[in-house]
Simulated assay, not measured.
Amino acid sequence: MMNTSDQNKSFAQKLWNAKGSIALALSVVLLSACNNNLEREAAVPETNVTAEEVADNTTQLIGKTVTVRSEPIKKIAPTTFTISDKQFFGSEPILVVNASGKLFALPGDSDTPVQVTGPVRKLVVADIEREYNLDLDPELYVEYENKPAIIAQAIALAPKPGEITTNPKQYYGKTLAVTGEVEDIRSASSFTLDEDKLLGGQDLLVIRAGTPKGTVNEGEKVAVTGVLRPFVVAELERDYDLTWDLTLQRKLEAEYSNKPVLVATEVYPSAIPQ
């Protein structure tokens, strides 16, 4: 029969073993979560952030490249315009300087957002002109001087899937940046983005040329950049390295012939809330 001292030692040993098992289990969970986070971070471009994240980390983002989606509110000059979002740098309009080397026409519909990718800078007109070989009229930017600006390396229209399928002609041949929920996975290289039910449009077909990088899951919110084309098999096969088989091609052609298809150059998890 154990005395009190032995019983205490036995209880302490059991407790220690239990704590050790709990600690080991927690370490496994935390390691697994860490690995999952690393995999997710590796899959998501570092620049793919929400406007809220940019707003909360303005100081830290100066000099870093970000991707932001917002509605343009005012054209300043052929290469500059402002965007505004209640969660993006407060409520102050942010100047976007187009340094991509490509002309970008702002959407006629002010409700259509744009996606802007580029470094965040404090605007010093003379420095921006020199570094990016631009000709900016200083008088137009007095109110933006020394305030945060995005020096855009890439700009794209960012309509919703339903807006595209409802009126595709205005988007044909243009590079788009579209976010939406994966609705119907047809193959490793094709899926649909859920349409906006309020608009009554159809789901948007997405096809990926070449060998797709990564996979998508049904219900996952993704961001897709690519060019919108009419679904014409002969033209798509001529212009892109498509990996579909004949059966899939025939099914898609029967369902989507001459309807819009987004030929994706990039697909990645979306940081933009839907």
Rank of each mutant, 00 (worst) to 15 (best):
Asp203Tyr: 00
Arg186His: 12
Val182Leu: 00
Asp194Gly: 03
Thr179Arg: 13
Asp203Pro: 08
Asp184Phe: 12
Gly201Pro: 14
Leu193His: 09
Thr192Ala: 11
Phe191Lys: 12
Ala188Glu: 13
Lys174Pro: 12
Gly200Cys: 01
Lys174Cys: 11
Leu204Trp: 10
Lys174Asp: 14
Thr192Val: 06
Ser189Asp: 06
Glu181Pro: 01
Phe191Trp: 13
Gly180Asp: 03
Asp194His: 15
Leu193Thr: 04
Thr179Val: 12
Leu199His: 05
Gln202Arg: 01
Leu176Gly: 04
Leu199Asp: 05
Leu199Phe: 01
Gln202Pro: 00
Gln202Asp: 07
Asp184Pro: 03
Leu193Pro: 07
Lys197Gly: 09
Arg186Tyr: 14
Thr175Arg: 15
Asp194Thr: 14
Glu181Gly: 01
Leu199Arg: 10
Val178Leu: 06
Gln202Phe: 00
Val182His: 02
Thr175Asn: 14
Gly201Glu: 10
Ser190Lys: 03
Asp203Met: 00
Leu198Lys: 15
Thr175Trp: 11
Glu195Pro: 11
Glu183Ser: 12
Ala177Phe: 13
Ser190Thr: 04
Ala188Val: 10
Asp184Gly: 01
Phe191Ile: 09
Glu181Ile: 11
Ser190Cys: 05
Ala188Cys: 03
Asp194Ala: 14
Arg186Ser: 08
Leu193Tyr: 07
Arg186Glu: 13
Leu204Met: 05
Ala177Leu: 13
Ala188Gly: 11
Glu195Met: 06
Phe191Gly: 12
Asp196Gln: 08
Val178His: 05
Ser187Lys: 12
Gln202Tyr: 00
Lys174Phe: 12
Glu183Val: 01
Ser190Pro: 06
Thr179Ala: 09
Ala188Pro: 01
Asp194Trp: 11
Asp184Ile: 08
Asp196Phe: 00
Ala188Ile: 10
Ala188Asn: 13
Ser190Asp: 05
Thr179Cys: 11
Glu183Met: 10
Ser190Glu: 06
Ser187His: 11
Asp194Ile: 03
Gly180Leu: 05
Lys197Trp: 00
Leu176Gln: 03
Asp203Phe: 00
Asp194Glu: 15
Thr175Ala: 13
Val178Thr: 06
Arg186Val: 12
Gly180Val: 04
Arg186Asn: 11
Lys174Leu: 15
Lys197Asp: 14
Leu176His: 02
Ser187Asp: 14
Asp203Thr: 01
Thr192Glu: 10
Val178Cys: 03
Asp203Ile: 00
Ser187Trp: 09
Thr175Tyr: 13
Val178Arg: 08
Thr179Leu: 06
Gly180Lys: 06
Lys197Ala: 11
Lys174Trp: 10
Thr192Leu: 08
Leu199Thr: 06
Thr179Asn: 10
Ile185Ser: 07
Thr192Arg: 09
Ala188Trp: 09
Val178Ala: 08
Gly180Trp: 01
Gly200Asp: 01
Asp196Leu: 06
Asp184Ala: 08
Val182Tyr: 02
Ala177Ser: 15
Gly201His: 09
Ala188Arg: 13
Leu198Cys: 04
Lys197Glu: 14
Leu176Val: 01
Ile185Ala: 05
Glu183His: 08
Gly180Met: 01
Leu199Cys: 07
Phe191Asn: 14
Ile185Phe: 02
Gly200Thr: 08
